[in-house]
Structures are given as C-alpha cells and as structure tokens.
C-alpha cells in the first residue's frame, strides 16, 4: 500500500465549507420537490394544472442544484484523496430525501477524523 500523500488542510476545510452549504441547500430543494410530487400525484392524482406547472418550474431548478452539489462533492473528494466508492456515496446522499443532512454530518466527522490522523501540509506549523 502506498504511503498517503499529505492533505492540504486549508484547502480541505474550504472545500468542506462549500460542500456543507451545498448539502443543506440540496437537502431542502429535494424536500420541496418531494412535497410538489406528493401534491401533484398523490393529492391531485396528476390532474391539477397548477401543480403540474409548479413541478415543471422546480424540477429543472432542483436538477441544477444537484449538479452544483455533485461538483462541490467532487471537489471535496479530490482534496481528501478518497477512494471511488466514497464519491458514489456522496452522490447518493443527494438523491435520497433527508439523507443529505445526515450525510453532511457523517462526512464532517470523516473529514475531521482524517485530518487528525493523516499527514497534512500544515503539520509543521503546529
């Protein structure tokens, strides 16, 4: 197993801060989308013109938010030098309702743990 190259703690923390915001925004956007889908298909059974319109407006916006979430997740994944499955997990967090909030906490813990354990470029400053 190759020795891990050091992490850049400053970059990691910046990336994580961005990812955290994206996680929360994506989580909220997904909940809104779910509410719209419930109104459109469960409450009105697909016959409500209004909810169809609302859904056609919000769906692309949510899609865009998810794209931004994936890009920021990818950035964090790169900086943390994680393995491939972790990226798939980050993407999954964004598509299951409510999970992104827990995923963000779990990711935060991982980041803190690994920054403490793995060598960083900032080690010399301490």
């Amino acid at each position: 197993m190759p020795a891990p190259r050091p992490l850049d703690e400053v970059q990691v923390r910046t990336s994580f801060a961005r990812f955290r915001v994206a996680s929360i925004v994506e989580g909220c956007a997904l909940l809104v989308l779910c509410a719209i889908m419930i109104m459109r298909y469960l409450v009105y059974g697909g016959t409500s013109h209004t909810w169809e319109q609302v859904s056609s407006v919000w769906s692309p916006i949510h899609g865009l938010i998810y794209m931004v979430y994936v890009i920021l997740g990818f950035d964090l994944w790169l900086k943390m030098r994680w393995a491939l499955p972790r990226m798939l997990l980050l993407m999954l967090f964004g598509v299951v309702p409510v999970l992104s909030f827990f995923g963000e906490r779990w990711t935060h813990e991982s980041v803190e743990r690994e920054l403490a354990r793995r060598p960083t470029l900032q080690d010399g400053e301490r």
């Binding site: 190759p2 020795a3 990818f74 030098r81 491939l84």
Partner: peptide, 19 residues
C-alpha cells in the same frame, strides 16, 4: 471519476517509491 481514482493511486505509488 474512475480515471481520477486510478491516477491518484498511481501518484501515491510514485511518491512512495520516491520515499
């Protein structure tokens, strides 16, 4: 993503060799 992963692994390995 796959390509990045392979590359990261390769660079780690190179660094280990240098060490």
């Amino acid at each position: 993503l796959w390509w990045r992963t392979v590359r990261t692994h390769h660079l780690d390995e190179q660094e280990a060799q240098r060490e």
